[in-house]
Structure formats: C-alpha cells, structure tokens
Design a protein around this nucleic acid. Structure first.
Lengths: 191, 191
DNA sequence: GACTACCTACCTTCTGGTAGGTAGTATCGG
DNA sequence: CCGATACTACCTACCAGAAGGTAGGTAGTC
C-alpha cells in the first residue's frame, strides 16, 4: 500500500477513535512513519485530508450496501446484513462509524466534510427506506408507520449504540439492539 | 448567578456544541467576560471543570427522572415525558445531550469525566428498565424482549438521533423516532 | 529538465497552566 | 474602634508544548 493510502487509512482510524478535533498531523506522521511536513505533500490541508477520508468511507459503505442489495436473499436477511456492517466495525475493528464521530464534531468541521457526513446519512436512510418498502411488498416485513421514519429510527439506534458502546465498554450493545430493530418490522409469526 | 455557576453553564453549552476537545479556556473566558487565568481560580484544571460539568448535568437529569417517576400518570405518559426531556434539549435549547458528546470524545477524556458519562448511561438504562417492567405489570406496556435490552435500544435511538439531527439539520428527528419507540412497547389496541 | 516523495527548519497561533500581584472584604485580638 | 491578618476574586505577564502550515532543499525517477 502506498503512503497516500496509508495516510487515508490511518487518518480514518484516528478519527473513528478520537474524532476530528482529536487527531493531528503529528500523530498521523508518527503512526505512518513519515515526517509531519510530508503529509502536506499528499494532503495540503487538514480539510483536504478530512474530506478525502469521508469521501472514501462513504464510497466504501455504499459499495457494501450495493452488494447487499444485489444479493439473493430475503429482506430480513438483507436487513440483518446491513446491521452486520455496523457490528463488524464495532466488534471486530473496535471502531465507531466514522460519520457519527464526525457528526459529533459538527461545529468544528469544514463545510466539505460536513456535506459528506450529511450525504452519508441521507444515502443510508434512502437505502433503508427502499429496503423496507420492498421487503413489505415481498411480504417479509410488516409495519404500519412510514418507512422513512422507521429508517431514521433504525439508523439512529445503530449509530447511537456504537457511541454508547464505546463509553460503557459494552461491545455487545449492537447485539442487544438488533432483535428490537428486527421485531419492529418482521412479520409476526402466527402462533 | 455567580461567576462559578456562569462558568459551569457556559462550559456545559460549549461541550454540548463542540465536544470536549472543541472547547477551550480562552473561549470560555471570552464568553463569560473574565480573563483566562481567572478560570483557574474556580477550576484549577480542565479536568476539574469537565468533571464538575458532568456531575452537575447528571444530577440535574436524575432529578428530572425522579420527578417523572413520582408523577401521577400512566406509564405511557411517563415514557413520553422521558422522551420529552431529550426533545426539549434538542428542539428548544438547540443542544445535544452532554453525555453523548462526551462519549464521542471518549478517548481524550480524563478518567473522572469518563466515569460520570458511564454512570449517566447506566442510570438512564436502569431507570428505563424499571419503567418498562412496572409499566408492563400495570398493563400499560406489552413486550416480549428483555426489558434491559429495550432500555438499551431506546437510549441508543434517542442519543443517536440527537447527534444525527445536528448534522442533518433535522430538528424534527426525535419526533420521527418517538412513535417507533412507543409502538414497540405500547399495548396493541384490539381493533 | 521536470516531477515525485520525501526531508529539515521554521512560523504563527492556540493550548492548558503558572507566578505573582492587587483591590476589596471579612475576621480577629487589643 | 483600630489595625493586623487572611481570604476571595480577579488581574497582567508569562511559559512550554502542540496545533496546522510554509519555505526551501535533496535524492531518485521518468
């Protein structure tokens, strides 16, 4: 992996752990094994770097959504796969979603980064809304509320759980939230 | 209000908007109309101030929970009142819960502040769990999952929604999440 | 000759924190 | 009632370190 990619990846990790205000060029240089000034060769300003990280993260995430969407499985499984994206980040990589970390530093963010974060959430909600509507049509889901509101709720719960999980040292928190999410849209079994 | 209280209140607001790393003694001094060095007279270190802010916030919140608990109303209304605590902060004060902001800066927090944040979440979950169990017993609620898991989910959804609301400029987001929360525990009407 | 990827050395601004001083007030024994 | 003492609440002036960023140089490659 070349230096630029290493910088992107390391910056991403640092932001996921310490937030936008909590990571610095000095830390980054140290972690990558390069001099602080050399970072500016690849990313002239922190805004540049921050934006690049956010763009890449959003892109990667959208690819993952794409592949869930086009997979051949029922909608309940697709929703589970979606939730699994978050669980993997938290439980295996021990990191929090980049965008919720950035959202928490909203006031100190450059406009370009802010726009990426907003876009990330919008696309997630749009994707989830579609999933819910299609799943309902297919008979996999059953709900009365507006799909957009459920989508907002699911995203809020997942993102919130990640942040709280960190501070309560409770990596199983997403696992606790999952059944609640599923039960709110799953078709009730006739007993 | 004396200077100390002003400092506490202003620091709280700044953290709620910009996070722990995003607020500084210089900002604070400016906002309160005092010299930077004078803050150290009231709060020798930033850790001191941060802890004091967190302790006070937690205390205030717990008082609010107490008064909901001891009010004479059914459990659905009590749950609504709980949600209303969050909505008030977001919609009227245009701020995000202090503790979710601190949780997002978890890695840069002094231990004493970390402990307060964790305690805040624990007490909220404990309170919510009790509310759910009592409400179920009283026949106001109906749910199958474990009460602690539902409590975790509700708290996650509310806290997550606040953070996302900020960055999507969507102050109505908590209102969107509310019906979903209620419908997951409310007794189904027999139609 | 130009471009890439790095370097050293430096700059300004901001960070939390310290030293030491001053004006006002409260408390004390004589 | 008086002056000594001590405390509170602030001040100016500073400090070391970290922040993001710049200038200018060098070695290797196309």
């Amino acid at each position: 992996m070349d230096t630029r990619d290493q910088l992107l990846q390391t910056a991403r990790e640092q932001i996921q752990r310490k937030g936008y205000n909590g990571f610095s060029y000095a830390d980054l240089a140290n972690a990558v094994g390069i001099r602080k000034a050399s970072i500016h060769h690849h990313f002239p300003t922190k805004e540049n770097l921050g934006t690049a990280v956010a763009v890449q993260y959003r892109h990667d995430f959208m690819s993952a959504l794409q592949s869930i969407e086009s997979s051949k499985q029922n909608y309940v499984k697709k929703l589970k796969a979606y939730i699994q994206l978050f669980r993997q980040t938290l439980e295996q990589d021990h990191k929090v979603c980049l965008c919720i970390m950035l959202a928490a530093n909203h006031d100190s963010l450059p406009d370009t980064v802010r726009a990426e974060v907003k876009g990330f959430f919008q696309e997630n909600e749009k994707w989830l809304t579609q999933l819910l509507l299609q799943g309902k049509k297919a008979g996999d889901f059953e709900f009365k509320a507006k799909a957009t509101e459920i989508a907002k709720s699911i995203l809020s719960a997942l993102e919130g759980a990640m942040v709280i999980a960190e501070s309560m040292d409770d990596p199983g928190r997403l696992a606790s939230v999952t059944p609640w999410i599923l039960s709110s849209v799953e078709k009730r079994q006739v007993t």
